[in-house]
């Protein structure tokens, strides 16, 4: 069995300061539920940073200065799960932090996801894409995905609906089910308008599609040599 290393970050509590955002409620259960489920399938926990312990520098690549430390954190694990607020404007993905270390918002134009160890990024946040057009997907994710196999996120806003969603995803992913289907299955709800999306990268169209359809955590070492193509899958 291929084991993968897992790191999670989540934020529920913000403060009335420059980093202020609305309080959230279930982000810990999503992120830690995912991590615990992965560990129960034999995978390895590396970090679990919550609230003020989750930092923007954990995602910033050092090439962009300002203390960028991604190579020691988000990009030092194979699977990173981030649960919090997100926003998407000017074709740049933003994720919010409760403490400015060193910024309140991380911006995807300071990310080089996958240059070291990161293979899969679950962004359990709103606005991972604003829609499902090629422009919305490629313009936001084509640049930051630099070796990352897959990003798993949401189209537009999402509502946490059940505390067990992260656990369900972790159980399916950890057991070796195709990651795209595991994500869509765990987070789609017919009752509310959650629209999960899985976006995979490849040097060719065929590779990107093959990853989208079949990639499991067992594909850890099947490197993405370039992000020339993206293939995505969503339920709506």
């Amino acid at each position: 069995m291929t084991t993968v290393s897992v790191g999670v970050e989540w934020i529920n509590d913000f403060h009335g300061d420059a980093c202020s955002q609305n309080q959230l409620v279930s982000m810990n259960t999503h992120a830690e539920g995912f991590q615990n489920a992965m560990v129960s399938h034999g995978h390895t926990k590396v970090f679990d940073w919550g609230d003020d312990n989750a930092w923007e520098t954990d995602f910033r690549n050092p090439a962009f200065g300002s203390g960028g430390d991604a190579l020691n954190w988000s990009d030092n694990v194979n699977f990173c799960y981030f649960a919090d607020h997100g926003g998407n404007w000017s074709n740049i993905m933003h994720i919010a932090f409760s403490k400015a270390h060193n910024q309140c918002l991380a911006s995807s134009d300071t990310w080089k996801l996958g240059v070291k160890n990161l293979k899969w990024l679950a962004l359990d946040v709103c606005d991972g894409t604003l829609d499902t057009t090629a422009a919305a997907v490629v313009d936001v994710w084509g640049g930051p995905m630099q070796g990352l196999h897959m990003v798993l996120t949401f189209v537009n806003t999402t509502s946490p609906w059940s505390a067990s969603e992260g656990t369900n995803f972790g159980n399916a992913a950890g057991a070796g089910q195709p990651l795209s289907n595991a994500w869509l299955d765990a987070y789609y709800s017919s009752s509310i308008s959650n629209s999960p999306i899985a976006i995979s990268a490849g040097a060719t169209q065929q590779e990107a599609i093959n990853r989208r359809e079949n990639e499991t955590v067992g594909w850890r070492d099947a490197a993405v040599t370039s992000t020339s193509w993206l293939a995505w899958k969503w339920r709506y």
């Binding site: 499902t132 057009t133 090629a134 422009a135 997907v137 490629v138 313009d139 869509l184 789609y188 017919s190 009752s191 169209q205 990107a208 599609i209 989208r212 020339s228 193509w229 993206l230 293939a231 995505w232 899958k233 969503w234 339920r235 709506y236």
Partner: peptide, 20 residues
């Protein structure tokens, strides 16, 4: 009927045009 949903797939290359 609460909803009828559909599972979509698509891809795009360097031309940024949605294919397939």
């Amino acid at each position: 009927v609460q909803r009828v949903s559909r599972l979509h797939v698509a891809a795009a290359g360097p031309e940024r045009v949605m294919l397939d």
